[in-house]
Simulated assay, not measured.
Amino acid sequence: MNFWAWALLSPLGPLFKDELGISSFQQALLLAVPVVVGSLGRIPVGALTDRFGGRVMFPLVSAATIVPVLVLGLVGHGSLATLLCGGFFLGIGGTAFAIGVPLVNGWFPPHQRGLALGVFGVGMGGTAISALTTVPMVKAAGVPTPFLITAAVLAAYAVVAALLLRDPPGRERVAAPMTRRLVAVLRLPITWQASALYALAFGGYVAFSVYLPTYLRTAYALPQDDAANRMAGFVVLAVLARPLGGWLSDRLRPTRVLGGALAVVVVAAAVQAFTPDLVPVGTVAFLTMAVALGAASGAVFALVAMVTPTEQVGAVTGVVGAAGGLGGFLPPLLMGVFYGSLNDYGPGLALLAVCAGLATLFTALLNRGSARAA
């Protein structure tokens, strides 16, 4: 539900560009602002979850997200300035991920956490709900409609979560100050290793879920609703692949799953960099990337759950989740810059292939190190 709210602006990016007359870079900035705020906000929210638990934090964050949703839907969509301001606070919804990982992690033994966290990660499919429903609702009943419906759903979830959600049995409340806990977390090697990998894996997913409608409309002249539906297909495949990545990580080393998935991203991104025909080559390339990025995202948190002390999972998740979201902030801006200056998206996708290649080599080194330790 929170990810649904977090992604409300993405399907409407082309509409706002046409109505407000903004540039490609301004459109990319508009779509990226909720991503970066939701990402950075995961750091304090993850640390607060270690202290107060998911039972407190989930209803709180869900209720707080209602405010920017209503503001954007009722009065905030008339200018770029109000959209940017509303999008800033809409980022609160994206912090919910840092609540769920430590909550789920505490309920399962280590050999089941990869799959469990992968299933929780299916919640990122809220972006698919947004992609499939936002544009049709706007066409049928006006811009405020999807925002009002999402606000009502969030309110209902906040009440249900407050009444029914439970923290894991025996959860120890962390009493140390947040700054001290964050400093301790930043000293853990896994924090930086997982952050780098998640910035590429989940960052790639976020970037495409935000920018793909614009890319498809610009590069292939697709209608707005068709582009949004294709983006939803990308999101659904990535969402379904996330539990697969976690399940495989429970049976193989997470680093092996990561290496294989990232190698697939290298090939698919390199193919799409040449802007092939959308059917069939472009479609296959994007859907293949969706599966690989989803599986890699699931494997990253299987790795975090495997090696992070239980009392630090929330804080580590916050930092890693922030890195993932920030990984999704930069690519839309770069894509806008590349297209605005070169009239070509190819360099952006080529850069993704290069980064995925470097990450593949990095996971190979991690896998070799874990094999030696075993």
Results as ranks from 00 to 15, higher is better:
His111Asp: 15
Phe89Gly: 13
Leu60Val: 15
Thr179Phe: 13
Val71Lys: 00
Cys355Gln: 14
Leu366Ser: 08
Lys139Gly: 14
Leu72Pro: 09
Leu361Met: 14
Leu70Glu: 10
Leu365Ala: 14
Val291Cys: 13
Leu74Ser: 04
Thr145Asp: 09
Pro14Arg: 02
Phe338Lys: 07
Arg180Met: 14
Val291Pro: 06
Pro331Ala: 14
Val71Gly: 04
Asn343His: 14
Gln272Asp: 13
Leu244Cys: 05
Leu262Trp: 06
Thr65Arg: 01
Leu115Asp: 01
Gly106Tyr: 00
Pro309Asp: 09
Ala350Asp: 13
Ala175Cys: 03
Pro189Glu: 05
Ala194Asn: 05
Ala263Gly: 15
Gly106Cys: 03
Val69Ile: 11
Ala131Trp: 00
Leu262Gln: 08
Phe234His: 05
Phe362Gln: 05
Leu30Ile: 14
Met57Asp: 08
Arg181Gln: 15
Ala228Glu: 06
Val279Ser: 12
Asp225Gly: 00
Ala116Tyr: 01
Val135Glu: 09
Phe3Gly: 06
Ala199Pro: 00
Met289Phe: 08
Tyr220Ile: 07
Ala241Cys: 07
Ala364Glu: 11
Pro11Glu: 12
Met335Lys: 08
Gly121Gln: 03
Pro144Lys: 01
Ala161Asp: 10
Gly314Ser: 13
Ala364Ile: 11
Asp167Val: 06
Arg55Ser: 14
Ala161Ile: 08
Arg242Asn: 06
Val75Ala: 12
Phe88Arg: 03
Ala32Gln: 05
Gly142Ser: 07
Ser39Val: 06
Gly327Ala: 13
Ser249Asp: 09
Leu330Glu: 05
Val35Thr: 09
Gly259Ile: 05
Val206Gln: 02
Pro144Val: 06
Trp4Ser: 07
Asp50Thr: 11
Leu248Asp: 11
Ala98Ser: 15
Val271Lys: 06
Val354Asp: 08
Phe58Lys: 00
Arg173Phe: 01
Thr82Val: 11
Asn367Lys: 11
Ser249Glu: 10
Leu72Cys: 05
Val183Gln: 12
Gly91Ile: 09
Val284Gly: 06
Leu48Gly: 09
Gly346Asn: 10
Ala152Arg: 02
Tyr345Thr: 06
Thr288Phe: 08
Met124Pro: 01
Val61Phe: 11
Thr65Lys: 00
Pro223Ile: 00
Lys139Cys: 03
Ala364Asp: 10
Pro68Leu: 11
Ala269Arg: 02
